[in-house]
């Protein structure tokens, strides 16, 4: 009796690596956005757009310190930017579109990465202890959701005036002052919580963006980490001055 050698294949039943994706399978093009790394790049870029927006938004808000007129003029200027070359509100609309796109993409990337993460760990640990403070883990996703909810409230309150005591037909400065009136202290409280959340989100997020884009390393981190903290702190302080000043009656 003889047995022949089966060339090129296992001669006996061999447990195949469970439908494991074989290495080097040609990937279809355009995988970049589908890849986990690509999604992170989307987060980094859209995050950067939003940080720039927040900085200018904060600067604008601080105009209220100079008086209601200054603030209203600023709000008006946003709408008449580059007139008469472009129609009324054109630039602002463009900025708004860019922001909406950024928010949507940022959230899409976050949600799909979170879903990926859940699939990557179907069985949870009985005991799990963070060794890196757990800061980024908890703050980023939980914070992101909190911020998203706040943005909806914030738009309804101060942009569309739906939940603002002064309603839509008022000047921006009136809406702001009315919105943060001492009687509505809880609005201010929500605002404070949200702004602090934004700060915490950015403290990690700004550095994380650099890391994702491949610009961070341990030498640069000595500057990048403090920079992220500084930007986050400036934003928190800058955003909190107007509402607190209004609530405590400094600005009327």
């Amino acid at each position: 009796m003889t047995a022949t050698i089966e060339r090129g294949a296992a001669t006996a039943p061999v447990a195949s690596p469970k439908a494991a994706p074989s290495a080097r399978t040609p990937k279809k093009s355009g995988r970049f956005l589908g890849s986990s790394n690509g999604k992170k790049v989307v987060m980094a870029v859209t995050g950067a757009v939003m940080v720039i927006f927040l900085l200018s938004h904060m600067a604008g808000n601080l105009k209220i310190v100079l008086g209601k007129d200054a603030f209203n003029e600023y709000a008006h200027a946003l709408r008449t930017m580059l007139e008469p070359y472009v129609p009324y509100r054109a630039m602002l609309t463009l900025v708004e579109i860019a922001l909406v796109v950024s928010v949507v993409l940022h959230m899409w990337a976050a949600i799909s990465l979170a879903r990926r993460a859940r699939q990557a760990r179907p069985v949870k640990y009985v005991a799990k202890k963070s060794q890196a403070n757990g800061y980024a883990t908890h703050i980023m996703r939980f914070g992101g959701i909190t911020i998203a909810l706040f943005v909806i409230w914030h738009l309804l309150d101060l942009t569309f005036g739906v939940v603002n005591p002064k309603g839509f037909d008022s000047t921006p400065a009136d809406r702001m002052v009315a919105g943060f009136d001492a009687s509505r202290w809880w609005v201010t409280l929500i605002y404070v919580v949200a702004v602090v959340m934004v700060g915490l989100h950015l403290r990690h997020g700004i550095w994380s963006g650099f890391q994702t884009l491949g610009w961070a390393n341990h030498t640069r981190n000595r500057a990048l980490r403090p920079l992220a903290g500084l930007v986050a702190a400036v934003l928190v302080v800058g955003f909190l001055i107007p509402p607190l000043a209004i609530t405590f009656g400094v600005i009327k």
């Binding site: 986990s36 790394n37 883990t137 980023m140 890391q211 884009l213």
Partner: peptide, 27 residues
């Protein structure tokens, strides 16, 4: 899963591989 730069990996790495490597990979 994807990386969200939490730094948990480098904290437990028995060889202390740095997060810099991930930035290099991203780049």
């Amino acid at each position: 899963g994807g990386c969200t730069n939490t730094g948990e990996c480098t904290a437990v790495c028995p060889k202390g591989i740095s997060l810099d490597t991930i930035a290099q990979m991203n780049s």
